[in-house]
Amino acid sequence: MCIIETQPVIETRRLTLRSPGVQDAPRIAALANDPDIARMTCRMPHPFGPGDAEDFILAVASQDPARAATFLIEHEDAGPVGVVGLFEGDDRVPETGYWIGRDFWGRGYATEALQAATAWARARWRRRALVAGHFSDNPASGRVLEKAGFLYTGETRRQFSRARGQLTDTRMMVWLA
């Protein structure tokens, strides 16, 4: 029998990845209400207010733990700094995505969180591959994914960005265990 963790916690050198709770809504809203973050995601609206944060937390709580896991990225000193998620989408393998609050860019938190999330997916879900993408006008995200072990597939997809309100070229990448 396989036991699925419904609220896993992952510890890294500097970070804790955990399920977001109601108490995190104000911080999530404050971090995510940045047009430069939202426009680099497919699903995040802008503006992103407290109601959006509460809806996000409820959506995470209702995820099927065998098909999706979303983690709040919490720094040991700074508190919540972003989000990383793994979920089954349109591809044959699960997808991952992330965002980090602007004040925490360039510190390696996204790479550290992605490395921990992929290791968790490999160990808990027995996943041997994950896909990710980044918008063509966001090469910094591509560098984060490369540092976390993702490789470019050569495929570019047109994906809808909710914050932009339009289709955007997305460079696809894959992680292989």
Rank of each mutant, 00 (worst) to 15 (best):
R39L: 01
I37N: 08
A32G: 11
G149P: 08
F150M: 06
D34I: 10
I73T: 06
L72A: 01
A132W: 03
N138I: 05
F56A: 03
F104N: 14
Q63V: 05
R126C: 11
A148P: 02
R158W: 12
Q166H: 10
L114A: 08
F48E: 02
A32E: 06
K147P: 00
R128K: 14
I57N: 09
S136T: 13
R18Y: 10
V93Y: 14
M172C: 11
F150C: 06
F150R: 08
L145H: 03
Q23L: 12
Q115C: 03
A68N: 01
M172F: 09
C42A: 04
T70S: 12
P8H: 14
F48L: 06
R171Y: 13
L17R: 02
L72N: 03
A66P: 07
A117E: 05
Q7G: 10
A38R: 04
R39C: 00
A113Y: 14
S62N: 07
V144L: 01
I4A: 01
K147H: 03
L167P: 08
R122I: 15
V84D: 03
Q166K: 12
P35D: 07
T118I: 09
A129P: 11
V22T: 15
L145S: 02
M173L: 01
R126H: 13
V9Y: 00
G49V: 01
R124Q: 11
I73P: 08
T156F: 13
L114D: 08
R92L: 11
A32M: 05
I28F: 13
G154L: 05
W125F: 12
V144T: 00
A53E: 04
F150Q: 03
A177F: 14
D64R: 02
T16F: 12
S161P: 07
R107P: 00
E88G: 02
E155T: 02
A113S: 12
Q159V: 03
P26Y: 07
L58C: 04
Y109S: 02
P50S: 08
V81Y: 10
S136E: 11
